[in-house]
Simulated assay, not measured.
Amino acid sequence: MKNNHGTLFVVATPIGNLGDMTTRAIETLENVQRIYAEDTRNSLKLMRYFGINNDLLALHDHNEVQKIEEIQKFLEAGNDAALISDAGTPLISDPGYKLVRELGKADIKIVPIPGASAVITALSIAGIPTDRFTFEGFLPAKSTARKQVLAGNALEPRTQVYYESNHRVQACVEDIVEVLGANRQITLARELTKKFEQVYRGPVGYLGEWLDEDTKRLKGEFVLVLQGADKQDDHSASELDHRKMLKVLIDELPVKQAAKIASQLSSMTKNEAYQLALSLK
């Protein structure tokens, strides 16, 4: 039996250039009764630019769970609402999946209004294989944890996409070089769709130098598109990868802990990883 519930529209907004706002997105935001935004101060500027005056309410990581019941009742009463993020497509490294999950369970209609996405935009200009890729979001803020994640992805053959902030991008690049080597191909996309958009394509070993050449290159928002590992079938290549991974881990962790993590991330047993770690000390 058809219910009379309202609809939640998940609406993509521009990642920089306001000209990328779609007609359908504008019409949707004009017609809903409420708009839920990650940061109402940021989204208010967007609403004013397009002359949209509907109720704007906050939905972010710290209140999402508490807001679900309120939003569900609002929609069950027959009202429509929209969910937007600060920029780009909601739920992609942004709040909202818990809300969407619970509303789906409640049989409330959820409609995507597609548009800009920094992940897809960066992939489209990367010049790196895009037939298979993984999106990893933001890497950990601390170097040790960041290296562990990179080491875990060292043998991943698919293209990897990461977000990074301006105050960590240089340290992140240094860690990528240390863990994966200087020859891995990378595309760094900075300030996508904005006035000062810049793109670096080439070996990651030269990226740090490129960033250092102009301090302006360290400003803004970054997407890193990292080429996947080459397929390596021979034992010597695998052993080399194991050594590289363990070298990074034992620089930051006790040997026993490093060996345990390495065994979880590779085909090595704990004992094999421990013996190899001892030989590298």
Rank of each mutant, 00 (worst) to 15 (best):
N17V: 01
S263Q: 01
A154C: 03
F135K: 01
T269A: 04
R34G: 10
V223P: 15
I15P: 13
A229Y: 07
E38P: 11
D55Q: 14
I26N: 13
R146L: 04
V223W: 10
G127T: 06
A189H: 14
A229F: 11
A122M: 14
Q227N: 11
N3R: 03
G104I: 07
G205R: 00
R217G: 07
H62L: 06
D107I: 00
A237F: 08
P203F: 01
D94Y: 09
K244T: 14
K109F: 06
T22H: 08
L18S: 02
Q170V: 09
Q257C: 01
D107P: 01
E209G: 02
A12H: 09
D86R: 11
Q232T: 05
P203C: 00
N54R: 06
L99T: 05
V223M: 15
R184I: 01
N54G: 04
S93L: 05
L18R: 01
R201Y: 06
V199C: 14
D20T: 03
E156V: 07
F222G: 07
R168I: 00
T215D: 06
R184F: 01
E136L: 14
E209S: 06
Q33A: 05
F74I: 01
D175M: 05
A145M: 08
Q198M: 05
L246T: 06
N183H: 10
L56C: 14
A277Q: 05
V255W: 00
H60Y: 03
Q160T: 13
A106M: 10
M268R: 02
K2D: 04
R168K: 02
P254E: 07
Q170N: 10
N54F: 04
A229M: 10
A277I: 10
G127R: 01
L224R: 11
S165V: 09
A259F: 01
G205Y: 04
A189G: 11
L155G: 07
I261P: 00
G6C: 02
K45S: 12
H235K: 15
S238Q: 14
F9N: 04
L180K: 05
V199A: 14
K231F: 03
T159P: 08
H235E: 15
E76P: 06
A126T: 09
R243G: 13
T7Y: 02
A262H: 10
